[in-house]
Each structure stands twice: as structure tokens, then as C-alpha cells.
Write a protein that binds this DNA or RNA. Structure first.
Lengths: 212, 212
DNA sequence: TGGAATATAGGTAGTACTGCCCATCTGCGG
DNA sequence: CCGCAGATGGGCAGTACTACCTATATTCCA
């Protein structure tokens, strides 16, 4: 197995030094570039042969998210691992959108950074388990609403609500169920009344977000 | 700290025995019920004072997912941890929908089960890091479409597309941007033409699914 | 058995988006 | 300087959903 060249970036010299030691505890891993800010890291990626990039999010000049965006524009296949101290949801979602391969909390850094490097080298991604909590939380939060719906609405209404959520028109639903468009229309109105929805596309909106 | 009562379920006696030992290595953790299938596990939850439930997914009579559904109907606040051998995406997504608190791969069981129990006792959730890969993959896969859109559309059109995706009406968009409804309408039409969308709500549908 | 809930279907009016036409103004590049 | 793309605006016909009526048949529960 050949040596893996790693770029690390953090504005705190002491943390950077510690990170370097943690990384190089992996026998075939070598830190070939140490950047003190995001701009510096981009330079490093552009000029050196880098296999994996590890960026702290909180950095001056250019933060880790901005740097990640530009690095992935430069080299879309580059595995980028982000480090952060806080579990901020915004930054995490942004990181997902950017398309980074790893997201590691500093509190778990010693163990998780090694896991993350191994994962991205195998083509997988890695997220500190603590960060996944809110993904579950999102799913869970809609549960009570769903229960209200299933108790409030009749089975026919639920059937139609589902089809609305599949972007089917009143006519399409009527054809599919062999009933009049008028009947479907009435069901729609009864649903909107029961759920106290108003306005154009309000039912469609609810149906989409419901997605039982 | 008082003792935590744990229910474990797996149809393989040997694995069950091993799991019990792993769990009880935690000093204040105690296995009070060992089930051999899903139905058995539900019985255990109904009759014993259980603090945490750990279910294998692949079980006869009733699998772990079905059992989790019924257990959470019985006791919605019960922390449920699922164990599985495979990284199947379907089962994982279903687990998210059901609202379990943990999802652990058997290959990492010894370490991850302990992490998961600690996490759910603190009210957090825990997912084996390997399972998060495809969450990232999903985000990443939509990138090319996004790029098409951003190159095809002008900045004004993108701005309006975003607002459409927020369920704003033509009038609301017009008011917010201080332009005529007609202008917004024309932009909408230009977008649908460029993206070759047809039919009612086609633009809304695309805008929602796009979600840059 | 009588009433409530539900599914069925029709009428009518208003509103909003689509789809196609048009014109004007601005800025940018050949 | 001319042409083109883009942003701005308007008109008009068609279609679809909303919102409010009414009415009948069926089913189920008190």
C-alpha cells in the first residue's frame, strides 16, 4: 500500500500539531501540507499532490465550508473531511449540500478522524454519529401530525390525499378510481376543511409534506 | 445511577448470548429479557419494565422492523435500537420513518452497541457511521441536475424558481420583488420552456424536488 | 328504526397557473 | 453600431383547483 498524502488545515497551531500526530499515527498516512486558513488550503490542493483534505470549519480568511466548495470545484473527486467543534445544524446541512465526504466533531477527533480517513479512502463517507441525531429527530417530529391525519380522515380521503401527493390531478384520480371528478373534488374539499387548509395548492403542499 | 433494564432479541442463540455479554460489560446495564423473535420481543415489552430495546432485524415470526412499529405504538417513548447485518438502504429508510433511536451494523456491534445504548439513554440517537454514506450519496447524486439548471437558467429565473419551491404564488413573488405579476408569469413560462416541463403544477413540482 | 357519517354526483363562481402572442428597455459583445 | 439576451410589462384563451351550494344512496351505530 502506497503512502497517502494528506492536507490538514486549522488556524490554531497547537491543534494543527496535534492533528498531524494523530493522522501520522496511521502508518501509511503522511501530512504533506499544513494550512493555517481556507485560502492557504486551496493553494495547497492546487499545487501539491493531495489524496485527502481535512479542514477545520472555523478559520479566518476563508472558512472550511467556503474552502471545501472551491476545492471541490477544482477537483470534484477530492475526499474532503470537515472538522468542527459545534454540532450546528446549519453548517452540517451546508456540508451535505457541498458534497464533502466526512464530517467529524473535534470532541471525538482522535478516534473519528482515523475512521473518517479510512472510510473516504475506501470511497465511503463518514459522519460523527452524534451528528445523525437530528436527522432522526426530523423524521420523528412529523409523527403526531400523521396520527391526527389518519384519525381525522376517512380511508377514501386518505387514499385521495396520497394520490394528490403524487402530483395527480383531480381528473387523473377520478379516472383511476372510476369515480366522478366531482366526487374527487368534494373529497379534496372535505380534506382541506378537516385540516383547516386554505388557498391555492394548499392541499398539494400538505400532501407532499405529509408523505406517510 | 440506577440499573438500566434492557431487552434483547435475536433468533440465533449464540449471537444472543454474545450480545448479552457485550451489553452487561456495561456496569449498570442488565439484560432482563431475551427474545428469540419479534413477537416474543413485543410480549417482553408489554410485560416487563424495559428501559431500552435492542432488536435484530432478521428474525422469524415477526421481523425487527414490524416489532419496532408495534413496540412504539405500545410505548412511543421507548428507545429502540435495531441491529442488522446488511447495509440495505430500504430497511434503513424504513427504520428512520418508524422512528427508532439507533441503527447498528452487526459488524461493528461490539463497539457500536455500547455507543448506541449510551446515546439513547442520554436522549440522543445513534447510527453506525457506515450507514450515513448513502445519505451523503443522495445529496451528491442530484448535483449534476442542479448544475444543468444553474447553467440553463438566468439568475432572475433561479431566484423565482426558489420562491416557487417555497410555495409562493405568482402574486406573492411579484410583491416581494417589486415587479409585475406579468413579469413573474413570463419568467415562470421561460423556466418551464427551458426545462421542458408541461402541465399544471409542473413547475411547482420541479421546484420542490429541486431544492438547491 | 332513525339519525349520523360517508361516498357518490351535480351546479356555479372565483382565482391562479399555463401557453402563446406582443412590446419596450438595458447592457454586452462582435 | 447593430444584434442578441435578458428583464420588464401587457393581452387573452384555456384549464384546474378552491369554495360554497344541493341531493341521493349506503352503511353503521345507538
Amino acid at each position: 500500500m502506497s503512502t497517502v498524502n494528506i492536507l490538514i488545515a486549522d488556524d490554531h497551531p497547537i491543534f494543527l500539531k496535534g492533528l498531524k500526530e494523530v493522522v501520522e499515527a496511521g502508518h501509511h498516512l503522511q501530512v504533506i501540507y499544513q494550512a493555517a486558513n481556507g485560502q492557504d488550503a486551496i493553494q495547497g490542493v492546487a499545487t501539491k499532490l493531495v489524496d485527502v483534505v481535512i479542514l477545520d470549519i472555523d478559520m479566518p480568511v476563508k472558512n472550511g465550508l467556503q474552502a471545501a466548495v472551491e476545492i471541490l470545484q477544482l477537483k470534484p473527486e477530492m475526499p474532503v473531511i470537515l472538522l468542527t467543534m459545534h454540532k450546528a445544524k446549519d453548517a452540517f446541512l451546508k456540508a451535505l449540500d457541498i458534497g464533502v465526504m466526512g464530517y467529524v466533531l473535534k470532541e471525538n477527533a482522535v478516534v473519528d478522524v482515523m475512521y473518517a480517513i479510512e472510510a473516504v479512502l475506501r470511497g465511503h463517507s463518514y459522519i460523527s454519529p452524534e451528528m445523525t441525531s437530528f436527522l432522526l429527530a426530523q423524521k420523528r417530529s412529523r409523527q403526531p401530525v400523521m396520527d391526527n391525519v389518519t384519525t381525522l380522515l376517512t380511508s377514501s380521503e386518505i387514499k385521495i390525499l396520497k394520490m394528490v401527493g403524487e402530483y395527480k390531478s383531480t381528473k387523473e384520480i377520478a379516472d383511476e378510481l372510476y369515480i366522478s371528478e366531482k366526487t374527487v373534488s368534494n373529497h379534496r374539499m372535505n380534506i382541506t376543511k378537516k385540516l383547516q387548509l386554505t388557498g391555492k395548492n394548499s392541499l398539494l403542499r400538505f400532501a407532499i409534506e405529509w408523505k406517510q
